[in-house]
């Protein structure tokens, strides 16, 4: 078993990579990809922590991970639907070209 701190450092790296991508990407689909990275970092942390918990408590972290995966799938579905609807109206999905609140 590799030490818990190495797993935590790995998921911290995933988190900051995801934050960087979510800030600097212009394409909204790219921002959604970065958000998936952030959610994966959090989900990995839950399973890693629960693996080092006492026996009988370990299911909680795994179930949290499953719920995060389900919520991330839901977020991706709604986000991509919004992207497609936005592209149909505005003909662009660059986040800095979408500067109208109302049209």
């Amino acid at each position: 078993m590799i030490p818990l701190s190495h797993l935590l450092i790995f998921s911290a790296a995933l988190l900051v990579i995801g934050i960087y991508g979510a800030v600097v990407r212009r394409n909204i689909v790219g921002i959604l990809l970065s958000i998936e990275l952030i959610l994966n970092a959090a989900a990995l942390n839950f399973t890693a922590f629960s693996r080092f918990a006492l026996a009988g408590d370990q299911e909680a972290g795994v179930i949290f991970t499953l719920f995060i995966i389900a919520m991330a799938a839901a977020a991706a579905a709604v986000g991509l639907a919004i992207v497609i609807a936005l592209f149909r109206v505005r003909k662009t999905i660059m986040s800095d070209e979408i500067n109208l609140l109302k049209w």
């Binding site: 693996r51 795994v62 991970t65 499953l66 799938a73």
Partner: peptide, 29 residues
């Protein structure tokens, strides 16, 4: 981490479904 179920769910939902959805959205937009 010996969480086989989560690993399989990750492959099924993320790599199977979410990435497919993302690629569809990219090709549409």
């Amino acid at each position: 981490l010996q969480a086989e179920f989560v690993a399989v769910v990750q492959v099924l939902i993320y790599v199977g479904a979410v990435i497919t959805l993302v690629i569809f959205a990219i090709m549409l937009t």
